[in-house]
């Protein structure tokens, strides 16, 4: 196997690296953005069949969440999870390998773009059914509470998912049982091709916490540090056995919903105005202003990330598709059941 098809770091090491500082966080955001660009190109060219959902514009939310949690905490996420997977520490190899359907992927290539998982850094298999992650996160929290562990669960899903029954049932359960769970609604303004105002009577979704008598917090999802702070606060509260929190992160979906969508329904100028608040642009400006990085270093990070991801993708492209036996693994246990 070529050297690019081996990770030099484990997922857990990559997770720990984030805590080292703003530069590492910025690099991770660049890595996510770069991978999404490559994924977009591969699907557009038809090199990968099926569909994909990009998280471009939401990198700060992903990295902020990863920073605030411990690797033993558990996250449920959606079909739009390349970013959170990488932020939590999953390696580009296991993420890209999975998206490209190769057996070096995190689920040996049988899951694909919508299904990423790595329990070593707390990512439960991501959910392609809207809302399905909320009750599962509540259940993970139920396990932590019952087993007396001080871990927390965090469910992240989109604005559109707050209109499905599972959202309300899960928040209610979590509230009455004071479960150590955090619900993060990524309000990126759109659910598929519908703007939030056409599907939802309120645009400030943190307000929904009131009916469960739990804290509802709104945060700028374009700001890593702000996200980290509110998630940490909610996690501390959960670890103190004080119950769940609903966090609404204001973001914007820079891409279309999925592979085929060019987002023609967006009002003129809306994307451009949000691009002014591009989380990567904001962070690089901040780091340059604070003297953490020079503009040259920013360019260099961008360039070297692009190179290493291209090399990885070339290596992956050369791999054959998995053996047929892959589809038969892990359907049921292979342990002896007595």
């Amino acid at each position: 196997m070529s050297t690019v098809l081996k990770s030099t770091e484990t997922a857990i090491q990559r997770r720990e690296a984030l805590a080292r500082g703003a530069k590492q966080q910025f690099e991770r955001m660049i890595e996510i953005r770069t991978i999404e660009a490559v994924v977009n190109d591969l699907f557009a060219a038809g090199s990968i069949h099926g569909t994909t959902h990009l998280c471009v514009g939401q990198e700060a939310l992903d990295v902020g969440i990863a920073l605030a949690l411990r690797p033993t905490d558990m996250v449920t996420a959606t079909y739009r999870s390349h970013g959170i997977a990488l932020a939590l520490g999953m390696t580009p190899l296991e993420v890209m390998g999975e998206i490209m359907g190769k057996d070096v992927g995190c689920t040996d290539g049988v899951g694909g773009s919508m299904h990423l998982c790595d329990m070593s850094v707390g990512l439960l298999p991501t959910f392609a059914i809207v809302g399905a992650g909320y009750p599962v996160a509540a259940g993970a929290a139920l396990a932590f509470q019952t087993l007396g562990q001080d871990s927390v669960a965090l469910a992240m899903a989109g604005d559109g998912s707050t209109n499905i029954g599972a959202f309300h049932e899960s928040l209610n359960l979590a509230a009455i049982w004071k479960l150590p769970v955090i619900f993060v609604v990524d309000n990126n303004v759109y659910g598929e091709y519908s703007r939030i105002d056409t599907t939802t009577p309120i645009e400030d979704l943190y307000l929904r916490a009131a009916s469960f008598d739990i804290p509802g917090i709104v945060v700028d999802g374009m700001d890593v540090t702000a996200v980290e702070a509110v998630v940490r606060q909610a996690a501390d509260r959960a670890r103190r056995c004080e119950g769940p929190t609903l966090i609404e992160a204001k973001t914007y979906r820079f891409s279309g919903h999925s592979r085929a969508d060019q987002a023609p329904y967006r009002p003129v100028g809306e994307l451009e105005s949000w691009q002014q608040r591009d989380p990567i642009k904001l962070m690089s400006e901040k780091l340059v202003n604070e003297g953490v990085l020079t503009s040259d270093q920013v360019l260099q990070i961008t360039e070297s990330t692009r190179e290493s991801i291209s090399e990885l993708v070339a290596g992956l492209e050369a791999l054959p598709e998995p053996e047929y036996s892959a589809m038969f693994n892990n359907v049921w246990t292979t342990e002896k059941v007595t």
Partner: peptide, 16 residues
Amino acid sequence: TPNVPVPYGKKLESKF
């Protein structure tokens, strides 16, 4: 089809 969930890649899915 075999008694397995639908697999992802083209090769596996066509065989399935």
